[in-house]
Design a protein around this nucleic acid. Structure first.
Lengths: 150, 150
DNA sequence: AAGATTAAAGAGTATTTTATCTTAAATAAA
DNA sequence: TTTATTTAAGATAAAATACTCTTTAATCTT
């Protein structure tokens, strides 16, 4: 029962977010990011990362190009990509609506004991995530040289 | 990549918390709660629940008794059991200290891009969980007849 | 057009989490 | 002291998540 940690997001979520932060903080105006290079830079399994970025492409956050000098690039402008959109793409659309106790259909009509309490916290988190853009985080990462690897 | 939800706590965490809320909202001044009965009442696998409650006993939140009319009861007064203590017992002691990106050793000295931002959110959550007692939640549950089952 | 490069897709493996089943140990009651 | 009851503990199974490997499709270069 120990060893588990506040795992708000899955490994896929962690890796996807790290990749996006990497891309946003290494703004190149043209061209695509090579996934192999990124996987080595970030020390993430290449195939696994590929699949995660695929999802982000399917969700309309990234676009991809095959062939020599191919890779992935932003489809939307990082200014318009919220942390919320990223997390929802990677973790599921109902990410911010889940009951703390895991009860299905928990809500105003049939609340669990934690409902009102947890909703406040959740909504706060939701607001924070909705008002933070990838561009902001990327700029911070670049300027303050924040680390993206262990 | 869909179907995953904001899983702040594991199934063990959900079940353990639900059981504690059940106990706190069914205050009997003497005697122990029978685990079999609770497992049926809450629709949680008996053996799994037993193991979870075992952990809460080992962590000094509950006490247990074997044999006829045995069961589990509070070791500490629910007034003095914080939500924080419960979550930490069930999810690990470092629950509120984990990096959103999963980077080991993330902190002031070597922050990830999310560190300051996430720390604020985490600390807020931590504060909320530390200032909420099981007795309060249990009283609410009883008075407002909140549900603990699907 | 042929070959090289790169992401997409699918199948397969490993690890972790969740759940079950069996046996042991403690306690109580007859 | 025997039997019934109940939690503890350990072994096993199933499901979910994380990761790897192989093949395919798109694109570029020559």
């Amino acid at each position: 029962m120990s060893g588990r940690l506040m795992k708000v997001i899955s490994k896929s979520g962690e890796y996807g977010l790290r990749a996006l932060l990497y891309m946003a903080s290494n703004q190149k105006n043209k061209g695509y990011f090579n996934i192999r290079d990124m996987s080595e830079e970030l020390d993430i399994s290449f195939h696994f990362l590929t699949k995660i970025l695929q999802v982000l492409t399917q969700k309309g956050i990234l676009q991809s190009y095959r062939g020599p000098n191919g890779g992935v690039g932003f489809f939307k402008n990082p200014e318009e990509i919220t942390l919320s959109a990223i997390i929802r793409a990677l973790e599921g659309d109902d990410f911010f609506d889940k009951c703390l106790l895991g009860l299905p259909g928990c809500g105003e009509r049939q609340p669990c004991p934690m409902h009102a309490y947890w909703m406040d916290i959740r909504n706060n988190l939701k607001y924070e995530f909705e008002t933070t853009s990838l561009a902001d985080l990327g700029q911070d990462t670049r300027e303050k040289q924040f680390r993206l690897i262990a």
